[in-house]
Nucleic acid binder design. Structure first.
Length: 296
DNA sequence: TCACGTCAAGCAGAT
DNA sequence: ATCTGCTTGACGTGA
């Protein structure tokens, strides 16, 4: 079991998320920014190593405009040395990383242009992880997508398009149950047809379910991950008190976290903490699991 | 230097 | 038809 957090580290001064506006795009500037982002990523991974954090979500913004037609540098080649260095660091320290493209990535979109752009963006994520020379246990997670007034057809479209994806994307792509549209039962249904692994989002499960039991769905989720995929990935968050239902917590609620851990025993999986204070909660969670003798 | 409107991209639901 | 949340940081213009 590895514990991780997404994209940013507030304890460090650097940002791995620097970007630039499209209208200000120029080659020199974007190279500087990518350099900054990659250096910062390595700095974060080093921080993580020092705090025994072995799971991390890499920001989709690491290479700004990577899949945009304006991108005129061969970034894979240009930053080859950095990629190899970062990849080595991840492998040498037995870390796992993942990526999570944002809400514009919809392979089941009814709009052809959105579908095409989504594939390009997924390709960027896949090439990024391939450039680090990481095996396919390092995943790219997306939601199933839009509903477009017909869920069955939209699931069918997802399946058909998934089957057609290039192998470099397919080998890394995993789906996550979301808070509004595609619940865990939908994900299990899709997994049964195409075998795509399922990221189980515990917070979304609590927000969006049809009354199914956690214990009934857990075996399906765990088994959706094959040997080459690594162990399952779970996303964890809890409700921020006093905020609108569905708002992610600012800091970890250790009691709720412990309850989640107890409810999911004895399964083993890696946990991405989607909590706003990032590394602080990850450190707390790890310490807590050590106290419970779940981590050593 | 600072504040604040805006940023490549979609969808769904509310107004 | 238009706005807002998702989820949040960071850019960069204008004062």
């Amino acid at each position: 079991m590895k514990i991780g957090y997404p994209c940013i580290n507030y304890s460090l001064k650097c940002s791995p998320n620097k970007t630039l506006r499209l209208k200000n795009f120029n080659e020199k500037r974007v190279i500087e920014i990518i350099n900054n982002n990659l250096n910062c990523l390595l700095e974060i991974l080093n921080f993580n190593k020092n705090h025994e954090i072995f799971f991390f979500r890499i920001s989709s913004e690491t290479i700004p405009f990577a899949s945009h037609e304006i991108m005129n540098i061969n970034w894979r080649e240009y930053f080859k040395d950095s990629f190899l260095k970062i990849g080595e660091f991840i492998k040498n320290n037995n870390m796992r990383v993942s990526m999570h493209p944002d809400q514009f990535i919809l392979i089941n979109s009814i709009r052809e242009d959105v579908y095409i752009r989504s594939i390009k963006e997924l390709e960027y994520h896949a090439i990024f992880l391939d450039s680090l020379e990481l095996d396919e246990s390092h995943k790219i997670q997306i939601h199933v997508g839009g509903v477009y007034n017909n869920k069955n057809e939209s699931i069918e479209r997802f399946i058909i398009r998934y089957e057609k994806l290039p192998q470099l994307i397919k080998k890394r792509l995993v789906i996550e149950n979301d808070d509004k549209f595609y619940n865990i039962l939908d994900c299990i249904l899709i997994n049964k047809k195409i075998g795509i692994p399922i990221v189980f989002d515990y917070f979304h499960f609590n927000l969006n379910n049809l009354g199914e039991n956690l214990n009934d769905v857990l075996p399906y989720i765990i088994n959706s991950w094959n040997r080459k995929d690594g162990i399952a990935i779970f996303d964890y968050s809890s409700q921020e008190n006093g905020k609108k239902f569905g708002t992610h917590a600012n800091k970890i609620d250790l009691k709720d976290f412990e309850n989640f851990i107890k409810l999911t025993r004895p399964y083993d999986f890696d946990i991405m903490l989607e909590i706003k204070d990032k590394e602080k909660s990850a450190i707390k969670a790890i310490n807590h699991l050590k106290k419970l003798n779940i981590l050593n």
